[in-house]
């Protein structure tokens, strides 16, 4: 099984040179740490920046420079700043090549639920609904099962939906899977030491397995 860092490392391998990428809060943010040096990408922050840089040194901290998680950041050379309307304009019009976000549940149709748990304090969807409704390519970082062992890869989401038929790929602690409309979750890779049988048992939705399933390379 992969830990959070390993999930981030595996997702970093999906990143291609020249991409504009939006990283969600949590594991997706960690992905930035594992993008190879020879691959240049531009990270978008939906509060109005293209070109997120590393966290600042103590002396560089600037209250006017934060990411969508409200953390202090720096800007890469070649950055640009803009309003929230402009930011979501570029998201809505499909200019952002890759969106990486977390999920509580994903359905075999690619529906995603990640903003609200009934009975718990509702904090809001932030930019998640806008991102999933318009992104060309969405990779989800998630745990395959809940702490109680219940599958989070489902036939239908049980939690309130964030967006319909939008997830393309999932990297979980157990596997890499694609969503093939009409076919369900297609198993592509197993986490080191995890068997196909374990993945079958952990996946409630339709699982499509073709041929030998390789172990993932991290």
């Amino acid at each position: 099984m992969l830990d959070k860092t390993q999930i981030a490392k595996r997702i970093a391998r999906e990143v291609k040179d020249g991409m504009y990428i939006n990283l969600g809060i949590g594991i997706p943010t960690l992905v930035a740490n594992y993008i190879p040096k020879n691959i240049n990408v531009v990270l978008q922050s939906e509060n109005g920046l293209l070109g997120i840089g590393p966290f600042p040194l103590e002396a560089e901290v600037d209250a006017d420079l934060i990411n969508a998680g409200k953390q202090t950041i720096t800007m890469m050379p070649g950055s640009s700043l803009f309003s929230s309307a402009e930011s979501f304009g570029m998201i809505r019009s499909g200019k952002v090549d890759l969106t990486i976000l977390g999920a509580m549940e994903v359905s075999e149709e690619g529906d995603i639920a990640n903003w609200k748990v009934p009975g718990k304090m509702v904090k809001g969807m932030g930019g998640a609904m806008d991102l999933v409704a318009s992104a060309k390519n969405i990779i989800v970082a998630m745990q395959h099962c809940s702490k109680e062992g219940a599958s989070k890869l489902l036939t239908c989401c049980t939690l309130p939906i964030t967006g319909l038929r939008c997830v393309k790929r999932i990297v979980s602690d157990l596997a890499v899977l694609d969503i093939i409309p009409g076919r369900g979750f297609q198993l592509l890779e197993r986490a080191p030491g995890v068997t196909v049988e374990q993945i079958k048992n952990a996946t409630e939705g339709k699982l499509f397995i073709q041929g030998e399933i390789p172990e993932m390379v991290l």
């Binding site: 600042p56 901290v61 209250a63 934060i66 953390q71």
Partner: peptide, 14 residues
């Protein structure tokens, strides 16, 4: 005051 919610610092000189 320009208060900062999440003061995140990098230890590495990039």
């Amino acid at each position: 005051e320009k208060r900062i919610e999440q003061r995140t610092i990098s230890n590495l000189k990039i």
